[in-house]
Design a protein around this nucleic acid. Structure first.
Length: 168
DNA sequence: GTCCCGTCCTGTC
DNA sequence: GACAGGACGGGAC
């Protein structure tokens, strides 16, 4: 079986949740003030996940440093497989956006070879299971406005993340 | 600035 | 299959 492990750790912004299978990260939860809340969101739909505080220690360290305002590059293995090929392409395209930079939904659509699929890109990003590691907050509307964000905190979180990265 | 329609993918029935 | 709906974009007004 593919054993799922998870961990919750504290960052400057609150408790951050990580869940991973043997293949790599399958879910992240952006910082929340309440640890049980993070745990609830993290384990929602995950069966038999085992708590492991040492899970992906390097990644934990990178995330903590990230929220302290340091420019870090996440080298976490990605292990989710329950997404469609298109969503997969969108997420990988998104993962290539450098910190502190933003692209529009249509630019991202363009890089994956479907220039008119801006809307589809949006719906693919809304399914992003690993926000932050896949920096979906770096994707904004073509006119410069933020667009939407499905992770806890919504656009407020998106804005805060972008402001944080501007200081990198 | 707002409205509307084209676009393309996903989830549900 | 068909259909509705979405983290969009761009043109018309």
């Amino acid at each position: 079986m593919n054993q799922i492990k998870y961990t919750i750790f504290k960052t400057k912004w609150g408790y951050f949740g990580l869940a991973a299978s043997k293949k790599g990260l399958i879910r992240t939860i952006l910082p929340l003030k309440s640890r049980p809340d993070v745990q609830k969101r993290l384990l929602d739909g995950l069966k038999d996940a085992q708590y492991d505080p040492k899970l992906l220690r390097d990644v934990q360290k990178q995330i903590i440093e990230y929220f302290e305002g340091k420019a870090v590059k996440f080298d976490a293995p990605i292990g989710f497989d329950s997404v469609s090929p298109f969503t997969h392409k969108v997420l990988w395209g998104c993962a290539k956006i450098p910190a502190g930079k933003t692209v529009s939904y249509s630019q991202l659509a363009n890089t994956i070879g479907s220039p008119r699929a801006g809307r589809a890109v949006g719906s693919a990003l809304s399914k992003n299971p690993v926000p932050l590691i896949i920096p979906c907050h770096r994707v904004v509307h073509a006119d410069g406005s933020l667009g939407n964000f499905s992770a806890p905190g919504g656009t407020t979180t998106k804005k805060k993340l972008l402001e944080l990265e501007e200081c990198f």
